[in-house]
């Protein structure tokens, strides 16, 4: 079947029951990213704990099923990470999704691996990546702000 499981169980479950959708108040890291070509929107907020690790995550997405599922799946992979670890994860995920990852699936958390199927639908890769672009933007802005403070 040519859809190759694009609308498979895990993706559809995240689409129908998105995790971490609640807005996080007074976030340390936050960003919003729009894809004007289709109106897709992804927004992410994170609150860090005293050790500088992600304690609370909020992710909201509007648009197609793939971006909503991707946002929800991303949100589940962020807890406990430092901003630098978030950056590294985003870079690894991007490489892995586009098949450029040296370590293959070992490079990304298992919870994200159902998204591999989107490789068969290259035009939809940007749907998957939009929440990650928001994450990267948010982390970058946070690191810049922090560097400015010191």
């Amino acid at each position: 079947m040519p859809l190759d499981g694009l609308y498979g169980r895990i993706i559809m479950d995240h689409y129908r029951h998105p995790r971490n959708r609640a807005l996080v108040a007074a976030p340390d890291i936050h960003a919003r990213e729009l894809n004007p070509f289709c109106g897709d929107l992804a927004e992410v907020q994170m609150k860090l704990d005293a050790a500088g690790r992600v304690a609370h995550v909020g992710v909201q997405a509007e648009g197609c099923s793939i971006i909503q599922a991707s946002a929800s799946m991303m949100g589940e992979a962020l807890a406990g990470k430092t901003p630098a670890e978030l950056e590294a994860l985003a870079a690894r995920f991007r490489d892995w999704l586009q098949g450029r990852s040296p370590e293959g699936a070992a490079d990304v958390p298992e919870g994200l691996q159902a998204l591999q199927v989107v490789r068969q639908h290259p035009v939809r890769l940007k749907c998957v990546l939009l929440p990650w672009v928001a994450l990267e933007e948010g982390v970058l802005a946070f690191l810049r702000r922090r560097a400015g403070e010191h």
Partner: peptide, 28 residues
């Protein structure tokens, strides 16, 4: 379903349509 999902599922059925803002964002 979102237009992109409609487009992908129709494509799997061999049906080619366009999805998106059709280069007419202010109209959308």
């Amino acid at each position: 379903a979102h237009p992109h999902d409609i487009g992908t599922i129709l494509d799997a059925e061999g049906i080619a349509i366009r999805t998106g803002h059709h280069c007419a964002q202010p109209l959308m």
